[in-house]
Nucleic acid binder design. Structure first.
Lengths: 121, 121, 121, 121
DNA sequence: GTGGTCTAGACCACG
DNA sequence: GTGGTCTAGACCACG
């Protein structure tokens, strides 16, 4: 895994874990790697992984069984998607439209770009 | 001006100045407020304003006349828009499309939302 | 380290660091002292060191690992030498030749002086 | 006259005046323009010209006759050249040789460059 | 008046 | 531990 320099590593890890959960690599309810193991695998400070897990715990994406380990919550995928959906519609999209207007980009132009990206990515 | 807690104030000020430039409140080539004046107006430490100005100087948005003050560059609006345009098409938009696919949002659905936002904002 | 009064300290520190890098005291890719440590060593305010580091970061001489510290870039020596070389040939040398002509110093005379200095320094 | 942004304007003006003196445009002993006139001609703050004149007064390049104006000193050209000569041999040249060694430029290489510049400039 | 630099020191996020 | 940001305020060169 490659880390972007500008975004906190712990958030990048959290995002990555979410991605693995909603794509079924870490199915809902199943155990995920220990802090230690993941830290070794990602060549990262264990504190950083702790922070990622704590972050996802707060959001209800992960659960913790004392002495056993961390698990994806029963409804982790649903929770993640709900989170994403709300930040998408309430933050990302309005920001994008605002920029778009500031740059005098028309809706048609935008739709074309989105269509192109949609096929490529 | 209200500051968001998460983004550095000096960047928020820089952004704000860019906005004022491309909307013509600080026309290309004209003088902008002195460091001290802006600091007083925004209730911020002068050093913070210095930092904002230095940031925009690096990007070629501002210029400097010794002992006189800061000016919007001759082509400031163009420069700012070019910056914005490239980050829009190369970062914002691809990120959006990625999220959109992860959430199984169709292009049609998206276009509708954009249309609605476009009129409201 | 002794500071000259006329040049900004942060630039003198930056220059000094460049010198240490191209002479191999801080090899390419290796970690350099933390902001705090260097500030203590040079008896300078940490902010001043931050400024030096930020300056070299912009120029691609230093790199940054989140929460770990600053490193000389992989190709730091090369970058520094390229900078120096261009300012040497495009600024220093032409200025010197101009002065030399204004003073009616012949090329022969100059070459002799350079030869002498070259052995002494 | 075009001003460089990095060097103080008053020094650039002083240099320019020196140039005019040693090239005979303002002959030794003759009156030079009033502060006011020069400020108008150069589109510069009168204080800046005052500073230039004061600077040259200190160096013995100019003289002042109260109520009449500023004059190039009787031996202005000589004084200027002596100044230049000493800063050339004691500062410029040693600095150049130091850079040259740091960049592994040989004396031969340098001499060639100087020769080329000598003809072009 | 203008900006540029610096100190002293705080608080914070991050690893 | 690391760097990043910010305040408060000083001093200076310059125009």
């Amino acid at each position: 895994m490659q880390f972007d320099t500008n975004e906190p590593i712990y958030l990048q890890i959290a995002d990555h874990l979410c991605h693995l959960i909603i794509t079924g690599h870490f199915p809902d309810g199943e155990r995920i790697p220990s802090v230690r193991d993941l830290a070794v695998e990602l060549e990262v400070n264990p504190n950083t992984v702790v922070r990622s897990y704590a972050h996802l715990l707060e959001q209800g994406v992960l659960e913790n069984q004392r002495g056993i380990g961390y698990f994806a919550a029963k409804d982790a995928s649903k929770t993640i998607k709900a989170h994403k959906r709300s930040s998408f519609y309430e933050e990302e999209l309005p920001a994008l439209v605002k920029t778009m207007k500031a740059l005098d980009i028309s809706v048609e132009e935008l739709v074309k770009s989105i269509g192109a990206l949609h096929e490529t990515l």
